[in-house]
Amino acid sequence: MADTGFLPKEKLKDFLEALSKDAVVYAPALEGDIVLFKEYSQGKDLYLDRPANLGPKSIIYPQCETLLSFDFKKNDPEDPKKVDIELKTESNFANTVVFGCRPCDAKGLVIYDKVFIDTDTADPYYKERRDKTTIISFACEAPFAGCFCTAVGGGPADTTGSDVLMTDVGDGFFFEALTEKGKAVLKSVPMQDGASYKEKAQKIKSEAEKKIRNPFPKDATEKLSQKLFDSDEFWEKVVSKCISCGACTYLCPTCYCFNITDEKTKDKGERIRTWDACMFNHFTLETSGHNPRPSKLKRFRNRVGHKFLYYPEKYNGVIACCGCGRCIRYCPASVDISEIVGYLKDPKQK
């Protein structure tokens, strides 16, 4: 029975408390008017009514991470100018459970996996966090403003990237383990048998799927119009209003571009990796002053291209967008990427 389970709503906190015995549990919580993933501690309020403003990406791929630290040491009293440098790396990531993210958030992690893990130069920091984290996703019953997950191959109850999928079946939550990790989690906590809820959950999930809008044809074989994609005029029309901030990329569950910088004090320092955004001018600015993507038009095109052309080209047609709608919802100028992709898939629209 470890594959499915059921919990009455009032037992949810007990479940989280049981989980926090062996792992650090992150769950969505209200912070003022916004929803953020916070470390869960006893008695803390959960908030599951809407997706978090910033998904769980920062737990597995933190906004600022120390890649290595270094000490400058003067070991030679004969030669005070001689400085030895000692390099150190640290890893102390605890077992972690991400509870209550949405299926789109979990799908985003799979898109990261291909970049950070499925390569000959795998990223050890990301990999460690990913391996040690269990994802319990919460299926959406209805879309939120801007959502378009089904159009990019996901869905309100998509299981990609999740270890456990949880569905609200009215009087409680139905849990399905999707991976070995997920099974282990469900086993570790006493739970009622969920088999009798399976059908109900299925119905809720397929109802939800029908409610999601489809800004462009779902058919993955439908290619973007290269002609329109190459047209400056098109981009000028759709992105003039963009203000070149990083809100879309930082909130995006599939954006992973980063910066590496050194920061030092007198005798020690760190090399840190921080999120960066392709929408910033300096992202590609070279020392000489030359910038291969000098305008927001070019930068925006690269962002859309990266998600809908370049990434699929590299990874078997997988689109690097999970349709969570955050970039649309929180855009200062309400730039709508789904509308833009819609035009690119069907140029006659414009």
Binding site: C257, F258, N259, D276, T284, P292, Y310, K314
Partner: peptide, 13 residues
């Protein structure tokens, strides 16, 4: 990064 991850030196894919 120098290893094809950080996303700034791309030209297309």
């Amino acid at each position: 990064c120098g290893i094809g991850l950080c996303g700034r030196c791309n030209i297309g894919h």
